[in-house]
Design a protein around this nucleic acid. Structure first.
Lengths: 357, 357
DNA sequence: TTATGCGATGTTTACGCAAACATCGGTGTC
DNA sequence: GACACCGATGTTTGCGTAAACATCGCATAA
């Protein structure tokens, strides 16, 4: 294996206990001494207080610069009682949705002057979640946002630290928490209707994993829409969100005689599905129509370009941050679910069924 | 001048600021009172000190539970001088590499008992970066990791807060910082060699954006490998990492007469390229071979499955965390670059050139 | 002139925690 | 029995900051 090239830097200093001798940081008092003012004046300059005369201000600023002063956020937080930081607890960064939502959260938070601390949970097990929440309790965070299937929060052993505001994404816990979510049902209905409107007799479903609330909702809405239209629901095929699982499912669906349309619970699985259908010689959309969910940027480049349901992750993230900050400011927990609408993006994987054959 | 000075003494924060009336949190003293011990004993229980008799411990624990006590991390950090938090500054969560690296960082950090605070920079401009670093200086972090093109750190206006340890990814700043990076050159060489070995006369390159250090390195190594082999380098085509840009590039490359092999700087662009080639009726790999870079999970489901260079983001993330923690503990900044090896994953987009035609 | 007001700055204090030191009973040793 | 020792717990102190309150001096009003 390639040996890591490692050019050396400064020699490591002799003895240095783990967190031993932390160099004493420059404090307000040091700055004050150098500037010849009181530390309170330094504080005022530091916080942009208006009642500091310009000359003094400049002097303090100069002293700060000379000493390389950086305010100590621990002390500040201790005084003010807030960290200006939001915690985000999530399972994985491997799903598009989570990543995009996190991205939106981070940028909304930054806009409000808040930083975002990540609290990844290695595995969706009770133990892991409980551990994460224990750590959360000690984290330097004012409030937090949970992105996960909330049924894992349901047991008595895992409880949110009291007095900490929280907002949840991707969950059905609207009766206990404030939830923001994509309109899974609405999006699904659009997808299924689109296929039915094209003339397909029914629509098959490539579902996401059982543990996922979003997957569950999409599957339920798919069935409900078919039922409303008086159609039969074929047995859903289950994947795990990955393209690989979509491929496996596709190999099976390709051989289903009556299958002319598939609604796939996310775009990655749709990619795998397209791959399998292609391999099996089933033309899309001529033989089989496919609709995805998410509208990842790559969807437009699938072969053929994927018709899918667009999710507005940015909006979800924004609403999550707004919601949690509102709760934080009013100190009043909220409940209820806010749905963010979806949009059907028609590309090239859907067409009327090939009735000729 | 008519200065609109408010007649009142106290400055702006008179009413209901964001941080209005924070409910006083339960402190050690409260727990101590209820448990009938001193606050120091509560502290000892809280930190698992061994010299507390079991009966006392249980009593304190009970009091903690009853009151819903949570240690105040600000006070703790103020005392101990460390937050046990790492800051990560990055431009975007929209590239696979950044996300996967971040994921690895977060999990490695968690493993070491550190949390990760995100510091997204909206745009790669000097102003934005400067702003981010200013905020960083006040952030509750012990050290940080920079994932970005470091030339933006080069101007005098942007300087890392002194005394804060830092490690950089995706950069060539090994002479000033500790850098961890994928072996871009090695991976590229593997890709180009693979194509040449198959018999292609030369290899075209679909490059990433100019601002990206990784893109630059890949382009340089591509050219160098061709030169070494005594081949001509066709003019590189530039994309922006997106599948869309790969598609546009593909439309052009499809019409290049001598083009039988393309090395694409990432998998997303390769996806777009495949799409364009398919549309133009150019068969892959019969007419044109394609090699990507990254090995995203979806690459195996492309049509056809993509031959690509696998990057070990997990390892990069791990090394970043290890490096920054080592610096933190020894209080000694390091320099030099550590390279993480890549691996060629051969799937179905490469084949010998179609010499018949 | 003296009183008054107010702007600029200094002094005190408390935030919650944990290290350092102090105390207080009991045990073992001679 | 006096003393040293030790384990369990209490008391004091200070981390860096910023609110609250105090002070000082100058300008304007009476």
């Amino acid at each position: 294996m390639a040996e890591p090239v490692d050019s050396e830097g400064s020699p490591s200093p002799p003895a240095a206990g783990p967190a031993a001798r932390r160099v004493r940081r420059v404090s307000m008092a040091d700055v004050a001494r150098l500037a010849g003012v009181s530390s309170q004046t330094v504080s005022r300059v530091s916080n942009g207080h208006p009642t500091v005369v310009e000359a003094t201000r400049l002097q303090v600023l100069a002293a700060m610069k000379e000493l390389g002063y950086r305010p100590n956020s621990a002390a500040r937080a201790l005084k003010s009682g807030e960290f200006r930081t939001l915690g985000v607890i999530l399972f994985t960064l491997s799903t598009t949705g989570n990543v995009r939502t996190l991205e939106a959260i981070a940028s909304s938070a930054a806009h409000e002057g808040y930083a975002v601390t990540l609290l990844p949970v290695a595995a969706p097990t009770q133990d892991e979640v409980r551990g994460a929440f224990t750590r959360l309790g000690e984290l330097a965070v004012d409030a937090f946002i949970v992105i996960m299937e909330v049924h894992l929060l349901d047991t008595a052993t895992v409880s949110l630290p009291p007095g900490v505001q929280v907002v949840v994404a991707d969950s059905d816990a609207g009766d206990r928490y404030s939830v923001v979510d994509t309109d899974q049902a609405g999006g699904t209905r659009e997808a299924v209707r689109h296929l039915l409107d094209l003339g397909h007799r029914t629509v098959w479903h490539l579902a996401g994993p059982k543990e996922s609330f979003a997957a569950q909702r999409r599957a339920d809405a798919w069935r409900a829409t078919l039922t409303e239209a008086g159609r039969e629901s074929p047995p859903p095929v289950r994947g795990d969100w990955s393209a690989e699982s979509g491929y496996r499912a596709g190999l099976r669906l390709a051989d289903e005689p009556g299958c002319t349309a598939v609604f796939t619970a996310n775009d990655q699985m749709a990619l795998g599905l397209l791959h399998a259908l292609h391999e099996k010689g089933r033309a899309v959309p001529e033989d089989i129509s496919v609709v995805g969910f998410d509208d990842i940027p790559e969807a437009a480049s699938f072969i053929p370009p994927l018709t899918t349901i667009h999710q507005d992750f940015a909006q979800v993230g924004r609403l999550l941050v707004e919601g949690v900050l509102r709760q934080l400011r009013t100190d009043a927990p909220e409940r209820g679910t806010t749905l963010v609408p979806t949009r059907l993006v028609i590309r090239s994987t859907t067409a009327p069924p090939n009735t000729g054959s």
